[in-house]
Simulated assay, not measured.
Amino acid sequence: MASRHVVAEAVATPRALPSRYLTPDDLVMMFELPSVETVYQWRRKRTGPRGFRVGRHLRFDPDDVQAWVESQLKGAAA
């Protein structure tokens, strides 16, 4: 029974985002997306989390990703 309690706590506790800037590959893994192209499509359509370029590399602030997730949840509840 103790293992069930631990699993229930793990499900109830939101996952913390890393404290570093996220890459498109990080978003693919976090959201189980089909490919990194999905992240780039979001960027082109301006539908995904806000990102920024560091040279030729795309990065995402974890706070912006969290805000985007919350906005998606609010839209889904409507």
Rank of each mutant, 00 (worst) to 15 (best):
Q72S: 05
K74Q: 09
P62Y: 01
D63M: 05
A67Y: 04
V6I: 14
K45H: 13
H5Y: 11
E9Q: 14
A67D: 07
D64H: 04
F52R: 11
G55A: 00
T13C: 10
L27G: 08
R44D: 13
R46T: 05
Q72N: 02
R15K: 09
R59K: 10
F52W: 05
A76Q: 12
A8F: 06
V28A: 07
Y40L: 12
A2R: 10
F31H: 05
S19K: 13
L27R: 07
A78Y: 08
E32Y: 03
K45W: 10
V39Q: 01
A10T: 06
H57E: 12
E70I: 11
V6H: 10
R44M: 12
D64C: 02
G55E: 04
M1T: 12
D26R: 03
A76P: 03
A77L: 09
L73A: 06
E32M: 10
H5R: 15
D64Y: 04
S19H: 11
G75K: 14
H57W: 11
W68V: 01
A76H: 08
R53A: 14
D61L: 04
V36C: 10
R43M: 14
F60H: 01
H57T: 13
S71T: 06
H57V: 11
A16M: 13
K45R: 15
T38H: 07
A78F: 11
V28M: 04
F52P: 04
A12E: 05
P24G: 09
P18W: 03
L73M: 09
R44L: 08
V39K: 00
L73G: 10
L33W: 11
S19L: 14
P34K: 12
S71N: 02
F52T: 09
L73F: 07
L58A: 04
Y40K: 09
D64M: 02
A67I: 00
A12I: 01
S19D: 15
R50Y: 06
F60D: 01
G48F: 00
R20I: 06
L27Y: 08
H5E: 14
A10C: 06
M29F: 11
E37L: 09
A67L: 08
V28H: 03
R50I: 11
A12H: 00
W42E: 03
S3C: 10
G75F: 07
A8H: 10
E70N: 11
R46E: 09
T47S: 15
S19A: 14
H57Y: 06
G51A: 05
V39S: 01
R44E: 15
Q41T: 12
Q41C: 11
P24E: 06
W42H: 08
V65L: 10
R20G: 09
W42I: 12
L17M: 13
S3H: 14
F60L: 01
E37Y: 06
